[in-house]
Every structure is written in structure tokens, then in C-alpha cells.
Simulated assay, not measured.
Amino acid sequence: MLIKKRISIFYFIRTIKWDVLAIAAYAMLAGTFDHYGILSQVSIPLAVTAFSGTVLSLLLAFRTSQSYERWWEARVVWGAIVNDSRTLVRQVKQFMPKTEQGLAVAKDFAARQGVWCFALSESLRKVEHSNKVSTYFSNIGANSANKANLILDQHADALAAASEQFNINANKQVQIDATLARLCDSMGKCERIKNTVFPRAYSVLIHFLIYVLMTMLPFGLEDQSKLVEVSLTIIVPVLFIAIEQTAILMQDPFENRPTDTPMTALSMSIENTLMEMVGEPPVYKIEPPASYYIM
């Protein structure tokens, strides 16, 4: 996630460099046709070009709005995961007997929930699982294509075992189970966002309109300065491309990019808090970010 620091302009330029090169080449081609050959006599009213730009602006506004909605939903879901993780451990700690065995159950829940956060974030980003997650599953001798879901199953099994061992009140057991259900809902929401592809038709239409705008723009400008004409034909579409690229970066919040939801940072913070709640020292020393983003 981008933070309040100076953003690397080079990162953004790298994401649109090929579009800029294509726009520059096409703009010079359109400018050439405007000054030489049979098309040099063609003049398109600037109002027509302005209308195309207005339509393009409306599409970009809608695209940016929908992309931000996806990004913000992902952040809200992970905010719920933070809260429900704390609630889970607090409930287990309070509802178990105030004995060594009861505290051990709470510590097991806290450790598993910390692993769950990392397992979910890594599966969403489709990266190799960290040593923490790999070691955990190696120790329990189990594996699954959906590791986060397996950990929730282990939560449920541990809750059932503790209820029998300590004769936990059924109402207390239901409250903990409701928290597990909310965590499962949050996991499903993340998977829905990850697996739902933003309609490609929007990008195709926007790019088509950008090239239509580039085609018409030189024929509506005054021909007194070729350099100014070509420069404007490049600058205006590049601005539209930059806006669209901003929307593209936001529309997929789980792609292991600087604009992602900061799942790793959140997972570290969650685990530190959970360990503190059960009387254990924090696992991570969280330093202030040195870059313009946090993961």
C-alpha cells in the first residue's frame, strides 16, 4: 500500500512506458498526415474532439471509481480480519478455565491465527509460502490446497475438543464459532475479489477512444507550429493513459505490488498483538517503512 511519502515517479513511468511509446509514435504519424498528403486539407472541428474527450473522461471516471471500490473493499475486509482475530483470541482466553491448560489452548489459538493470516495473504498473492507457514504444516503433518481453510478447520476441531475437555458453556462455544464464521466470510470475500476479473471491455473501449482522440486532435489544431501540435497530441492521451493505469493498479489489490493491500504488514501486526494478549513477547520488530509503500 502506498503511504504518505514521495512516490517513486520511475515506478509509475515503468508501468506506462510502452503505452507512452505507442502514443508518441501514433501521434507523430497522425501529425504527418495532417501536414502532408491528401489529408492535409481535412479539418475537424475542435468541438468534435472535445466531445470525444468528454466521453473518454466519463468512462475513465467510472473505471477509476469501480477500481477504487474493489481496492477499498479489500482493505475493509482485512480490517475485519484484524478485529476478528483479536476477538477470537480474547474470547478463547476469557472462556477457557484460568489454568495452565486453559492458557495453553489460548496460546495455540493465537499461534494458529497468526499462521492463518500469513497463509491467506500468501495464497491471495500466489507466492511461495513463507517459512512460518511451511514449517507449521510440516509440523502438523498435513497439507491442503487451501491452507487458510484448513487452519480454520483446526480452530473448529480445537474448539470442540476444548469444549469437551473443560465442559465449556454452549453459549460461549457458539460465540467463538460465530467469530470463526466471520473469519471464513472474510476469507471468501478476499477470494471473490481475487478471482473476479475486472471486465476487459473497459480497457479495450478506453484505448480505442484514446486513439480516436489522437487521430482527430491534430486535424482540429492550428497548423502554425508542428512541434506544439505533436506535443499536445502526445501529452493529452498520456494523461488519459496515466489515469487508466492508476485504475488498473487499484483494481487488483492482491497482486504483490506496491499498491496492494498491506497484508504482510497487517499479518505481522496481528500476530504481535495476539501474542501479547496471551502473555508472549512480540514475534516481529516492526520498523518504520523505508520506502514509499508497505506490503
Rank of each mutant, 00 (worst) to 15 (best):
M1S: 12
W18F: 10
I23S: 00
A24L: 05
Y26M: 08
A30G: 03
T32Q: 07
H35E: 14
Q41T: 12
T49Y: 05
F51S: 14
G53K: 00
A61P: 08
F62Q: 09
T64A: 06
Q66G: 04
R70A: 00
W72K: 14
R75H: 03
G79K: 00
T87K: 04
Q91W: 04
T99S: 09
E100S: 10
A104K: 15
V105S: 06
F109V: 01
G114K: 00
W116K: 04
C117L: 08
S121V: 11
E122C: 07
L124I: 09
L124R: 12
S130P: 15
F137T: 03
F137H: 01
F137K: 01
N139E: 15
N139F: 08
G141R: 15
A145F: 13
K147G: 10
A148Y: 12
L150T: 05
D157C: 07
S163P: 12
A170H: 12
A170M: 12
D177K: 15
L180E: 13
L180P: 13
R182N: 13
L183T: 08
L183C: 01
D185F: 11
S186I: 04
R192T: 10
R192N: 08
N195D: 14
F198E: 07
Y202H: 09
H207S: 11
V212E: 05
M214D: 06
T215C: 08
L232R: 02
L232Y: 04
I234G: 01
I234S: 00
V236E: 02
V238G: 00
I243V: 10
E244K: 07
E244A: 04
A247C: 03
F254P: 00
R257L: 09
T259E: 15
T259A: 09
M263K: 12
M268K: 14
M275W: 07
E276M: 11
M277I: 05
E280D: 14
E280R: 04
P281M: 06
P281H: 04
K285A: 09
I286S: 02
I286F: 05
Y292L: 11
Y293V: 10
I294S: 01
I294V: 13
